[in-house]
Lab assay of single mutants.
Amino acid sequence: MSGIALSRLAQERKAWRKDHPFGFVAVPTKNPDGTMNLMNWECAIPGKKGTPWEGGLFKLRMLFKDDYPSSPPKCKFEPPLFHPNVYPSGTVCLSILEEDKDWRPAITIKQILLGIQELLNEPNIQDPAQAEAYTIYCQNRVEYEKRVRAQAKKFAPS
């Protein structure tokens, strides 16, 4: 494992614990031996107030490669969400998460999670990743928002 990646992720964890947006979660997972795995984080993004996503808490896994922060983490909703920019596998399609697009090593975990929260309610229809959600979003916004509200209710924190 890269010392650069681990040191950056340790800084990220410290900064997150000191200050993070209300309702968001970002925690490194534990290895079988109980030690912390900084390369694999369990996160959760709350649906934004005043949107059909409100009330939901959407679980996301963030996986970092050894060359982080040169390369972005892979962000994957578990379980996958109904959304035009979420692949059926759950992987998020967002330009700041793509090395050859808008990724920059200075982007923080907090910025990534806030960017994904923004994307939930403002899909990028130029870059669809899920045919069904994309089609319904474009053709029947009322039905799309109904499905999103049902999903938010399903993923409401207990």
Rank of each mutant, 00 (worst) to 15 (best):
I4N: 06
A5K: 06
A5Q: 13
S7W: 08
R8N: 09
Q11N: 09
E12C: 00
R13H: 04
R13A: 02
R13F: 02
R13L: 05
W16I: 05
R17E: 03
K18C: 09
D19Q: 00
H20Q: 00
H20N: 00
H20G: 01
A26L: 09
P28C: 01
T29N: 15
N31V: 06
P32C: 09
T35D: 02
M36K: 07
L38K: 00
N40I: 07
E42I: 02
P46N: 07
G47C: 13
K48V: 04
K49R: 14
G50K: 14
T51S: 11
P52W: 11
W53E: 04
E54C: 03
E54A: 09
G56R: 01
G56N: 02
L60M: 12
D67N: 14
D67Q: 10
S70A: 13
S70P: 04
S71V: 05
P72A: 13
P73A: 12
K74Y: 15
C75L: 15
E78D: 12
P79N: 15
P80R: 11
L81F: 07
L81R: 04
F82L: 07
H83W: 03
H83A: 03
P84W: 04
N85L: 00
Y87R: 01
P88E: 15
T91R: 09
V92Q: 00
V92D: 07
C93I: 00
L94H: 00
E98I: 15
D102G: 14
D102Q: 00
R104K: 11
R104W: 05
A106P: 01
A106F: 01
Q111C: 15
Q111Y: 15
I112N: 13
L114I: 12
I116N: 00
I116R: 07
Q117N: 09
E122F: 11
I125P: 07
D127Y: 12
D127F: 00
P128A: 13
A129D: 05
Q130S: 09
E132H: 09
Y134T: 05
Y134G: 05
T135K: 06
T135V: 15
T135N: 08
Q139D: 13
E143M: 12
E143K: 10
E145H: 02
K146T: 13
V148W: 03
R149G: 09
Q151P: 01
A152Y: 04
A152L: 00
A152P: 01
K153Q: 09
K154I: 08
K154F: 04
F155A: 07
A156E: 13
P157R: 08
